[in-house]
């Protein structure tokens, strides 16, 4: 009786532990062969050089890095588009190098790419969103339900009968996200998915991601070189030459302005203003990252 109780407890602990970590990479390295025009390998590029990190289920994580820092290569590992040269990647406990598990990995961690036009394949929004679950063999009644649900989740139900060609970039990216949501993933990986969008489009996509994270508990891994997009993340990793150069809460990471610059990135404008105010002797908390917080802080200063 007692031992049976222990067993149940143990299983629960293990279950919880498994749920807690969704993505884990250990000493992940990736090498590309550099080839000449005859296809012969002339050199080796180590795009990722020993990345170890864990992402907990339900987290919103931002990976920052300059061009060529290895961030896109890293993203492709989480979706089993690439396999490690060295080290391991676990997505929801699955080793991504096990080829027969590739589909399971991709259903767990869906990926959104940079160019919205390269990801849409259908003439009707609804059909595009249905593509993923159809390929998974989901029954058609269930597909209908999922398509309606996921379009609602990204706020695009109005457009379900529209042609994606006439949508804006931000709307197209939301359709791409809906297509992933319809596969019921645990995680969405976005590789510079806002880089080609106008400000309104960027806002739409970011708001959608934060809502999915908050309300549906979807783990988000946002890969970008816009530091502003990291301001509201739970954790931030900054990559430089394939290695993690900085990691931590956004407030901590953004405080390291010299290291940020060294990584080829730039502080968000709000942080740059705060820094200037600090230098001039204004007592403003240097961890402030949003315009609203800054005006509040200055309001308090004025009231003193």
């Amino acid at each position: 009786m007692r031992s049976g109780g222990l067993k149940v407890l143990w299983r629960r602990i293990m279950q919880k532990k498994k749920e807690a970590v969704l993505i884990e990479t250990k000493d992940l390295a990736h090498e590309y062969g550099r080839r000449d025009e005859n296809g012969d390998v002339t050199g080796i590029v180590r795009a990722i050089d020993g990345i170890s990190l864990t992402v907990r289920a339900g987290d919103f994580v931002t990976v920052l890095g300059a061009n060529g820092s290895g961030k896109s290569t890293f993203a492709r590992h989480l979706n089993a588009l690439l396999h490690p040269t060295e080290g391991v990647v676990y997505v929801d406990g699955i080793d991504t190098s096990e080829e027969e598990m590739t589909l399971a990995v991709r259903q767990t961690a869906g990926m959104v790419f940079q160019n919205p036009d390269n990801q849409i394949i259908s003439n009707v929004v609804e059909e595009d969103v249905a593509f993923g679950p159809e390929n998974m063999g989901v029954p058609s009644l269930e597909i209908k339900k999922r398509v309606a649900e996921s379009l609602a989740q990204v706020g695009m139900q109005k457009y379900r009968h529209h042609s994606p060609n006439h949508l804006s970039g931000g709307q197209k990216q939301r359709i791409a996200i809906a297509g992933i949501m319809a596969m019921h993933p645990k995680c969405i990986v976005l590789d510079e998915a806002t880089a080609m969008l106008d400000p309104a489009g960027r806002r739409q996509v970011l708001e959608t991601l934060h809502r999915l994270n908050r309300e549906e508990g979807i783990t988000i891994l946002l890969i970008t070189h816009y530091m502003e997009e990291a301001a509201e993340a739970d954790a931030v990793y900054v990559l430089k030459q394939g290695k993690i150069a900085l990691a931590g809460r956004p407030e901590t990471v953004f405080g390291e302005s010299d290291k940020i610059k060294d990584c080829g990135l730039a502080l968000p404008d709000v942080s740059r203003i705060v820094q200037k105010l600090n230098n001039a002797g204004l007592p403003i908390d240097k961890r402030i990252l949003t315009p609203e917080k800054l005006t509040e802080a200055l309001g308090r200063l004025a009231a003193e």
Binding site: D198, P199, A200, V270, I273, P291, E292, T295, A302
Partner: peptide
């Protein structure tokens, strides 16, 4: 669907205050 720079936004809301 456009915006003003973040710096302008901060200056404007301070002025409103």
């Amino acid at each position: 669907g456009l915006d003003v720079p973040v710096s302008a936004k901060i200056a404007n809301s301070l002025r409103e205050k």
